[in-house]
Design a protein around this nucleic acid. Structure first.
Length: 413
RNA sequence: CGGGGAGUAGCGCAGUUGGCUAGCGCGCUUGCUUUGGGAGCAAGAGGUCGAGGGUUCAAACCCCUCCUCCCCGACCA
């Protein structure tokens, strides 16, 4: 992609009223744009990142045998009455009447909807187990939005739902998700802390939260300096157990639940088991805040100059910066690299703007592509170009001819 | 919803004991010179001063009402 043809309206200064690093950088790097509080557009660069994160999630979900589908956002409130969650989730549910006078809502989550599908299609134990998931927009009328896309009223979530004939099967699926979650976050450059947690309005018995420590957190954890034990902060007081406890702010990225039969009972999702008896389907549900995940990645992968994308989520693999676009030799070489690398499957951003070097370098730091190829007259005189590593800041001079191999080596490692 | 802050050009801000044609920096347009860390000179464009009402000869500034955004709390991915 050529910078001049892409849409990257970077901002020099952090917009007014922003405090969180990820909030400022996501706006400055033009990943997102606020329409109103808690409602964001994903601009081209941000959308590329979003798709990268989604694809990591898809790969890991598919790898453990989950099937992707897409559920509607528009729900008749009738469905929610069956579980009583039209009342328990009333505060955050966006409701309205359609022109037929039917009471509707925009889906804040999808247990009721997926269970309706299970009810209609699953009749036999032979159809179990099965796990379905989607990556989709949720709507929650949050009383308080926070830090840009960290807590929004319209946000993107991966939600998976497992259906089993017994608890043993559920535990198996739960563990598969548990391990997949660790892989997903790791690939996103994060090292999550897992704690067992309350299941809250979701219901069920066992649940685990995946959090990362970050200043934008909305939760607190107690970490035992001696044993390394981690507990969720429930009432603000240090745990009574021995040892010295440190309080850390953390942000929740994922939450998995062993639901049991709460939804299948309420909606009549039953199957005929091998013994000829009708039983409720045993369910689990597994969520990841995809858009929030992006904020967490930025929060934990940045420096004073901008974002430092982990390779797998970066909007581009490499950014080529010809220092002087007006220099024919530089520009020609830049275009050659662009062609060669692109045809090798490398996603390249070529900054072909006729701007000063300083501005192009600063923008490159800001948008945080992992590797930068700098083409300047000074180095070309020695038949060399440079590769700058965004994370380490190290610059390596390589011969013109070796550039492609050097980049491939890095982007494929 | 309770508490605190803030709305003046695309962005960041000044101007507010009422008074001339509403300013500055960045960005934007045109031309020339530049180009290794947010370049220089010159000439330009761009504003319902968040909205409505009131006081006044006169309101960005004073009064009333409302809207919006940000931060802290209760809740969540």
């Amino acid at each position: 992609m050529y910078w001049s043809k892409f849409f990257i309206p970077t901002l020099k200064e952090p917009p007014i009223g922003t405090e969180a690093v990820s909030h400022q950088l996501s706006l400055r790097a033009s990943l997102v744009h606020m329409l109103t509080s808690g409602v964001y557009s994903y601009l081209p660069t941000g959308y590329k990142v979003l798709r990268n994160v989604e694809n990591i999630i898809r790969q890991e979900m598919n790898a453990i045998g989950c099937c992707e589908l897409l559920l509607p956002s528009l729900h008749p409130i009738e469905v929610w009455k069956k579980t009583g969650r039209d009342i328990t989730l009333k505060e955050i549910m966006i409701t309205f009447d359609n022109k037929k006078g039917q009471h509707m809502c925009l889906g804040p989550t999808h247990e009721e909807i997926i269970t309706t599908i299970a009810k209609d299609f699953i009749q036999s134990y032979r159809q179990l187990p099965v796990t379905l998931y989607q990556i989709q927009t949720k709507f929650r009328d949050e009383m308080r939005t926070r830090f840009g896309i960290v807590r929004a009223c319209e946000f993107i979530m991966k939600d998976a739902y497992s259906f089993d004939r017994d608890w043993e099967g559920l535990k198996k699926n739960y563990n598969l998700q548990f391990n997949a979650y660790n892989r997903i976050f790791k690939r996103c450059g994060l090292d999550p802390i897992v704690v067992s947690a309350d299941s809250g309005a979701m219901g069920g018995s066992i649940s685990h939260e995946f959090l990362v420590t970050a200043p934008i957190g909305e939760d607190a954890l107690w970490v035992n300096a001696d044993s390394g034990e981690i507990l969720k902060d429930e009432d603000g007081k240090a745990p009574l157990k021995p040892g010295s406890w440190d309080k850390k702010i953390a942000i929740e990225l994922g939450h998995i639940f062993q639901l049991g039969t709460k939804y299948s009972d309420a909606l009549g999702a039953v199957f005929l088991d091998e013994d000829g008896k009708q039983k409720p389907i045993i369910m689990g549900c597994y969520g990841i805040g995809v858009s929030r995940l992006i904020a967490a990645i930025i929060e934990l992968n940045s420096d004073g100059n901008g974002i430092i994308w982990p390779k797998e989520v970066s909007p581009f693999d490499v950014e080529i910066v010809p220092v002087q676009v007006s220099d024919g030799v530089s520009m020609e070489l830049a275009e050659t690299y662009y062609q060669e690398l692109s045809s090798s499957g490398v996603d390249v951003l070529l900054d072909d703007r006729d701007e000063s070097a300083g501005r192009k370098f600063n923008d490159a730091d800001l948008i945080g592509v992992p590797y930068r190829v700098i083409i300047g007259k000074r180095m070309l005189a020695q038949n060399q170009v440079e590769i700058k590593d965004r994370r380490t800041g190290q610059i390596q001079a390589v011969s013109k001819e070796a550039l492609k191999e050097e980049i491939l080596k890095r982007t494929r490692s």
